[in-house]
Amino acid sequence: MKNRTSVLIVGGLIVLAFLGLVSSFTANPAGFIQKIAIMAIIVLVIFFLVRKFSNSSPQKKEQRAFLKAAKQSKKRLQQRSGDTGQKNSSFGPISTLKKPKTKRKPPAHLTVIDGKKGKKKNRASL
């Protein structure tokens, strides 16, 4: 019963809204179109204001990620330049020609699952 009453109420509201739209359109078509245009402009203005001032926009997230990466790379370069200065003084210019060792990824631990590979499928012959 509860669902039936809510469906009737919502359906009645939709029918009344449709009748109101039709009657206002037939009474004053220019005014109806003007009201629709004004509502659309207001909705667009609100949409752009919310989008501009929201904190979770993708551009801001990308900008923060870029700034964080730039800070990390600066810090890394400063540490390397500080380390290479010490190495140059103790080992000479040959140490600058060596490439830094790249980190290896740990091997993926995969297991092979043995299935029924030797068993032939029972196919219907045509």
Rank of each mutant, 00 (worst) to 15 (best):
V43N: 01
S90V: 14
K61R: 15
K101T: 00
Q79G: 04
A30T: 00
V50E: 08
I113L: 14
S24Y: 01
K60F: 02
K61I: 15
K52E: 12
A69E: 06
K120V: 07
F47Q: 10
E62G: 05
P93C: 07
V22T: 06
Q72N: 08
G92D: 10
K99C: 03
K71A: 03
S95K: 09
R51N: 13
K103H: 04
I46G: 05
G115S: 13
A69W: 06
K101M: 10
S73W: 03
S95E: 15
Q63L: 15
R64Y: 12
K119M: 02
V22G: 08
L110E: 14
T84G: 09
V50M: 10
R51G: 08
K105E: 09
S89A: 14
S90E: 07
F48G: 03
P93S: 09
A69L: 02
S24H: 01
S95W: 12
G31K: 06
G115T: 14
V43M: 03
L49I: 00
I41A: 15
S23L: 02
I46H: 04
P29R: 05
R123S: 07
Q72H: 06
R80E: 07
D114L: 08
Q59C: 07
G82V: 04
G82H: 00
N88S: 11
A124P: 03
N88C: 04
T96W: 00
P58L: 06
I42M: 04
Q63M: 15
P93L: 08
Q34T: 01
K68L: 10
I42T: 01
F91H: 10
S89K: 15
Q34A: 15
F91Y: 12
S57P: 09
R51L: 13
T84V: 10
I46A: 13
S81I: 00
K105F: 03
K60P: 07
K103V: 01
